[in-house]
Design a protein around this nucleic acid. Structure first.
Lengths: 250, 250
DNA sequence: CGTACCTTTGATGAAGTTCAACGATGGTGG
DNA sequence: CCACCATCGTTGAACTTCATCAAAGGTACG
């Protein structure tokens, strides 16, 4: 982004192989505390994540200059990352050129934790920074019989995370029409065909999308006038022009 | 919420002990697919989560009538849940009485997956519904030596999820001043003392908070006029009245 | 048939965006 | 060293969108 930064470091630099204390003893202790009482983890995020250093996780240290891309939207997910120092942002770009930042990540924080093949966000260095990349392929974390349940629960967490991130991106600087279109398409996706049965009230929808009940109602009526949807009853929506709704969202 | 619903079922009903096929064979297969390529999970969320039924997870089936509370904000986290049928919402209430809905959860979806002792959200039945509660205390998922790394990575995911949910709640229907106050307090928390060194540009902040660069700048100036902060330089913020900023947020 | 809640619609106002211009800062090159 | 340039940040004025206030249909249920 800045020519200054480019002059300092052109390409991510591999600084070192990062393999901290791989003592099983400490790992077990960590495990026990976490596993027996998942509710017991009350320390701040930074410290919690800092515990990674106490496990068998090994990673590669990389440096990035300010403004450099760490990975791009659409890249294959090979690693997740921890910030050693500096600040990283994860973001997405909308078709109208706007940028939505999912989060800033400071020292000790994890980012890029995604499943599903491709990164749905890109990551960039806000300042010159140093990160550790932990490769998924090197992880034998979920091997062994007992790992199956852990894996399942981990999958749940990742799905919840994906949904939450999508929701946050939806709420940031999008019009009422975009929010509602996105909401309808989402629920159309859960059901079958073009009919959407809304289980919730307008108030629920409003509170979910960060709008008022009046705006939801007005926007819904506008969609109907524009022949994007039909409204046989207030809770029953028929998508008449899914493509147009999709265009609103992208 | 509706007296109708209350008449049908007053109190969550324990329907059954839910223990599906606990065949290790199928569990292992699930594990292998997931563990060897975390990026390989491309099926829709519903199906992915549906696989829970193939693991050793056991849970208790509960029924709730429309409008009933499944758990409240502040309750001790003892379980996480899967929707069998119906729709559930997870939400928070702000001090001014507004409600922010974190998400709707339909059949097959997981909710209430939290760590940290207390639920930060409450969960309510949008429709009459049926959920399975999986108790953390019964989980031996993270036992065994190999589980330590899994546990660590799981902890990362939960921390990311917590942050993402907080971000989504911040973006829904809050004023520019509230968003910015929350942002500054967050960064003040990461550093020490009352001085916040912002690593990012106004544009970055705007894209994170769902505002424009002009609004961020104007709000920052207003804070300075109101003696909430001092601005020795544009990237250097000194919190002069942390309590007042905190009041804005709550 | 009446009550309560949900939904829709209209009128008005405030908050934030957009467009535009100007000031500050830092790095570059003469 | 200073002038120049690019980027970042601030401020002002007009405009848009959405929230707020108010009131009137609809629907379900007792």
């Amino acid at each position: 982004m800045s020519s200054t930064a480019a002059a300092r470091t052109a390409i991510p630099t591999v600084d070192a192989e990062y393999r901290p204390t791989s003592s099983k003893g400490r790992s077990s202790a960590t495990f026990a505390a976490f596993g027996s009482s998942p509710g017991g983890e009350t320390q701040p995020a930074g410290e919690s994540q800092g515990r990674a250093a106490g496990t068998a996780l090994a990673g590669q240290v990389l440096s990035f200059a300010e403004g450099r891309e760490i990975y791009a939207e659409g890249d294959t997910v090979r690693s997740f990352y921890k910030v050693m120092h500096g600040v990283v942002r994860t973001c997405r770009f909308t078709s109208d050129g706007r940028r939505q930042i999912d989060g800033f990540h400071a020292e000790g924080e994890i980012f890029g934790l995604e499943t599903g093949g491709e990164h749905r966000l890109s990551a960039e260095a806000v300042t010159d920074c140093c990160v550790v990349a932990y490769r998924w392929s090197g992880l034998d974390a979920f091997d062994g019989g007992e790992g199956a349940t852990a894996l399942t629960v981990f999958g749940f967490a990742m799905t919840c995370l994906k949904r939450s991130q999508a929701h946050a991106l939806l709420l940031g600087r999008r019009s009422a029409a975009q929010k509602l279109a996105s909401f309808l398409l989402d629920w159309a996706g859960r059901g079958t065909g073009e009919c959407v049965d809304l289980a919730m009230t307008r108030q629920d929808i409003a509170d979910y999308l960060g709008l008022t009940i009046e705006t939801v109602s007005r926007t819904m009526s506008q969609f109907e006038r524009d022949k994007l949807i039909a409204l046989p009853s207030s809770r029953h929506v028929v998508l008449r022009n899914r493509a147009a709704l999709q265009d609103l969202v992208d």
